[in-house]
Amino acid sequence: MPSFRATLQITGLRPGHAPEDVMNMAVATVESAHVVEANQLDIVAGVPRITVRFMVEASEYDAENQFARNAAVSMAHGVNEVATTGALRSYRRSAGKWLAL
């Protein structure tokens, strides 16, 4: 199964939500349709960024990419319920490198 990752900047928490709610929501949203391999939080230039790595069922190349894009957008919508967000990016693992979709 091809591997993908989605990254999302987190710019703030919505009232009533704890920091761990952000990653919990991101993982829950993606794993509702795909197998989640890993997740992490990084601080890039002072801005928190979450990454969720997941696999998409093998099919046709463009369809796999579209499933991954859809998963990333769903993740961002879910996270927006608990936090304010910035840039969303999606990547595909290919020959040991992460290529932007």
Rank of each mutant, 00 (worst) to 15 (best):
D42P: 00
T51A: 15
Q40V: 00
I10K: 13
W98C: 08
T51S: 15
M55W: 03
A26S: 03
M23A: 07
A71R: 02
E64S: 06
A72E: 03
R93Y: 09
V36L: 14
S32R: 10
V44E: 15
A38I: 00
L13W: 09
M55G: 05
V47N: 11
E57Y: 10
A87F: 05
G96F: 07
N24P: 00
V82Q: 13
L88K: 06
N39F: 14
L8Y: 11
E60L: 01
A28M: 07
E31N: 09
H77F: 13
A33C: 04
A38V: 00
A87M: 07
H17Y: 15
P19I: 03
E20K: 07
N65L: 08
R69C: 01
E37S: 11
H17I: 00
G78Q: 03
A38P: 00
T85N: 14
V44I: 15
A33Y: 10
P48Q: 12
R14C: 05
L101K: 01
A72R: 04
A28D: 11
K97S: 05
R5I: 00
E20A: 13
Q40W: 07
T7S: 10
P48M: 11
A72F: 04
N80Y: 04
L8P: 00
G78K: 03
G46I: 04
Q66I: 02
L88A: 11
R93A: 10
R14L: 15
V35I: 09
N80R: 13
Y61N: 03
W98S: 09
S59R: 08
L41F: 11
E37K: 08
T51G: 10
N24F: 12
N80G: 14
E20L: 08
E57F: 13
P19D: 09
V22I: 06
E81T: 05
